[in-house]
Amino acid sequence: MHIPNGFVDPKISTGLAFAAAGALAYCLNKVKQAVTAPALQQALAGAGEKVTTITSKARKVLTQNGRQTIEKIGLMAGLIFAAQMFNFPIASGTSGHLIGGALAVIVLGPAAGTLAVALVVIIQSLFFADGGILILGGNIVNMAVIGGLLTYYIYVWLKKLTKSFVVSAALAAWCSVMLAATATSVEIGLSGTFALSAVLPAMLKTHAVIGVAEGFITVALLGILRNVKFYNNEEKI
């Protein structure tokens, strides 16, 4: 689903770049707040002074758990990058690959998971020419923000509804692909590259099948990650 340069109008690409930047800034801020705490040493060093000056001067540093969070974001991004390389053939001459948005947010949480997918998309665009640089913002919005951040809330809602981890994860993964495909179609349609009325049904038809594979792969990888105790029920960021 990586949009190449040329499919989307530069004006729309610019708008999407701003949207992506805003969403990533929000996620970065969320993660930063979760992984840092005021430096204890500094507060103790100034114990004789007024409490207000201590707290205002105390700088935030990475916590032990925060370090693990950053390592986990890296490993999830690496895993999704590798899994995205797996192109599986689908009927009538097309192929699909994982997006991994649902997987990332279920394992890491909405903000950290979105960052992991965004990192994958950025590396793919910069070093592998997979997805145009001009439309990098759009690709981040489609796959990381819609396929990740938004998908997390769909997953939470589905989990409440179905009360099943596996079913809600698989359905959320399918939804993430369909929503990303819809967003991609709308971006192409608005750019005047091709009529939305033709692109949207074609995209949804193909990705309904790819989404099923996304669901299966997401559940399979979640199972493996749970088995090796990488995925657990800790609080998600």
């Binding site: 990586h2 190449p4 040329g6 091709f194």
Partner: peptide, 24 residues
């Protein structure tokens, strides 16, 4: 890895707007 085009490329080929893509 399958050498078939991915979902988006395939749709672009079928509908005929694949040539608007710029090779990077």
């Amino acid at each position: 890895a399958s050498s078939h085009p991915d979902g988006l490329e395939w749709v672009a080929e079928k509908l005929g707007f694949i040539e608007t893509a710029k090779e990077s």
